[in-house]
Each structure stands twice: as structure tokens, then as C-alpha cells.
Simulated assay, not measured.
Amino acid sequence: MRNLKKIIALSSIALTLTASYGCEPKVKEKKQILLAESVDPNKETRNNTVKIALLLDTSNSMDGLINQAKSQLWDIVNEFTHAKCGNESRPELQIALYQYGNDDLSYREGYIQQVLNFSSDLDEISEKLFSLTTNGGEEYCGEVIQTSLKQLEWGKNPDNLKMIFIAGNEPFTQGKLNYKAAVGNAKEKDVVVNTIFCGNYEQGIETEWKKGAQLTGGEYMAIDHNREVVHINTPYDDIIIKLNSKLNKTYVGYGSRGASKMEMQVTQDDNALALEEVVAVKRAVSKSSRLYNNKSWDLVDASAEADFELEKLDEESLPKDLKGKSKKEIEKYIETKRIEREEIQNEIAELNRKRQEYISKNQKENAEGELESAMLKAIKKQAGLKNYSWD
């Protein structure tokens, strides 16, 4: 019996060490037609999570930065679809958004506003980015960093990659709160602060943007936030955009948010297309990836969750087309939509592969977006320290 207890104890220690090193293992989800209540997309999960807080200066001179954020969000999301942990599991991605340095914001709050708490809802992230407008103001970098550290739930999981990206063009030292105290707090929370100076590289160093990053082991970068990126149109763009419209028709909204979220989905498609056609293409590619999951309002995504049950779903929560239907009829309808969606997503993914090959052959050097390149460089470097890789 004593030997048996020793074996059990050693096994427990081994399991603990395995779970605490590198990326957390992802529990394989069962594919089944089960439905239930909405799920909070911001809820902390057991799986490894990448948390990124974007702190954007929205003063008068920052229109170019905001436009880059709107258009290059999808490049960052699409890159993350290829991220994996050392144990081959795929990380989740959550993004939070703050704006600062805008006269329209409260003086008492330091001209700072949380625009979005940590969210994995890509439509919501897009909506909040497109809601940003610029206006002159005071830019307090230390204060906005400190605010994001206090307000956001960063969690204590040492395997999660936690990053702040702060972008602006005024001295990093502005404001009553010393930025060194703020980044010191970030380091205690295992949050890496990356600084993006919108202007001359040397000027950013002189105004202490580089020091702000170095204190947490982050990256300092300088970008031309007004640079216009010349995108390459490909023979596959129009087809992908048309497939995206078909993809939307596979969503089955339910619950109190179903109808409004489906409307938001289309609105964000329109926003991307109005910005530039290539942005709409990149968004469509994101929507065909694993990171575009709408289980809180779409029955198809909800049906893939192991803890969803049809019996728990109130009939009033069902969309009009499914009211009065039997359980078997509802399951068949959802399965049909799921198959249709997977076919469209696979087609978009294949067309995007050909699109990327076309771009690689025709694109000039240094043609990527400034903000996108800066962020991905820092993300991949810091992710490597957490046992991440890209396939």
C-alpha cells in the first residue's frame, strides 16, 4: 500500500509539471448537434490564450494610425490562425481596445477610454475600431497603460501570452503618472509592453518610447502611420467576396442577440469593403478561420460545443424558420448549414492560398502595412519565449 501511495504521488507531480510548462493542452471538442444558452465570449478558458491590448492615440494627427488599425486587423488575425503551441494545440486570441489623447474624452479620466474589454468576437472588435474618431488632446502614455492594467482581467496563467501595444506620437513622459511606474506594474503582471512611435525612429528614442518598451522586455518600433500601402489585386478577390456573402447565409442567429449580431456581421463586411476591396477579402479569409467563432449567437457554432443541449433552448430563442419544428428537424437544418459552411470556408481557404502565391510573385519588397509588420514582429518574437510556433 505504501508503494502504491508513492506511485500515485509521483504521478501527480509529473502531471502537474506537464500542465505547467509551455502551452496548455487543448481539450478536443466533440462535434455533435447540441444546443443551449449563449456563451460569454470573454469568459476565461482553460486553453492557452493570447491577450493583446491595443492602446491607440486618437488625437488629431492620428487618422492614418486608425485607418491602418482598421485595415490591418485582419492580417494579424489571419497570421494567428497558423499559431500553435509546442504541444500542437491552437491558442485563442482576445483583443482589448483603448483610446487616449482625445479632447472628446473625459478630462477626469485622463482623456482615456476603454473602448472594448478583452473579446474574441471579431465582428465586435471591427465595430469598435470603426467607431474611433480623432480630435486633439493630451496624450498620457503612463496613465493609459496603468488604466488598462487595472481594468482588464489579465489572469494569472503563466503560459498565456499577455501584451500591450501602445501607439502614439507625443513624448512618452507626458502626464502626472510616471510611465516607469506603469510599466513596472505591467512587468509584475507578466504583461509585455510594446511601443509604436508614429514618426521618426530617433525622435521616438529621444522622447523615451524605447525605454518604455525595454523595461518589460518589449519591442520599440517606429512607423510611418500616414503611409499608404499599395495592395495587389488578384484574380481571386471578387470570387472570395462573393463567397463571403454566401457564408453569411449559413449563420443561424438565436437568442436575444441573434438578429442584431447577424446585422453586425453584414455591417462590418460593408465597413471593410468601403475601406478597400482587399480589406474585405482579408476579412472574408478571417471569417473562414477557426478564430471566427460565434457560438454565443449562432446555432451552427453552438452545436459544436460538448455542453450544449437542444432541450435547454427556449423555443422563443429560436429563429423564425425553426419555431414549431421538432428536435430532429432542427438538428437536420443545422447540420445542413454546417456542411454548407465548411464547404464555403474550405473554398475560401483554397482561393486564399492561390491569392497568396499570386501576391508573393508580384509584390515588391517592404510592401506590408506598417502597423501590421511592427506588431507581428513583436508578437512572434515574444510568442517564441512561450513555446509558440507558426506552421
Results as ranks from 00 to 15, higher is better:
Y251M: 09
G204Y: 12
T234K: 03
K242D: 14
T207Q: 10
V230R: 13
K211W: 00
N194F: 01
A186L: 03
M262Q: 13
V230I: 13
K187Q: 06
T216F: 07
I239S: 08
A213M: 07
D224I: 06
I240P: 08
I232Y: 13
Q214W: 08
G258F: 08
D237M: 06
V229K: 14
V193I: 12
D238H: 13
I239P: 04
K187I: 01
L215Y: 04
I232W: 14
D237R: 09
N194P: 06
L247E: 05
H231N: 09
E228D: 09
V193D: 02
V192F: 06
D238L: 12
I232C: 01
T250M: 06
N226R: 12
I196K: 04
K210H: 05
N200H: 12
N194T: 02
N248L: 09
Q214L: 07
N226D: 14
N248C: 09
I239H: 11
K249L: 09
N194R: 05
S256A: 13
N248D: 11
G253Q: 07
K261W: 01
E206D: 11
S245Y: 12
S245C: 05
Y254V: 03
S260M: 09
K210A: 07
K210R: 15
K187N: 03
G253V: 01
M264A: 06
E263L: 11
E228W: 03
W209N: 09
R227Y: 08
V252R: 03
Y201K: 12
E188I: 11
V192Q: 03
G253N: 00
F197L: 10
K261N: 09
V252A: 04
V229T: 12
G204A: 14
Q265D: 13
F197K: 09
K249E: 15
G218N: 05
T195F: 04
K261L: 04
E202K: 11
K242G: 06
T267W: 02
K189S: 11
T250Y: 02
Y236T: 05
D237S: 10
H225P: 05
T267K: 11
D238A: 12
M262C: 11
W209K: 09
D237Q: 06
E202Y: 14
T207G: 02
I240Y: 07
M221P: 03
G212E: 10
F197Q: 11
I205Y: 04
G253T: 02
Q203K: 08
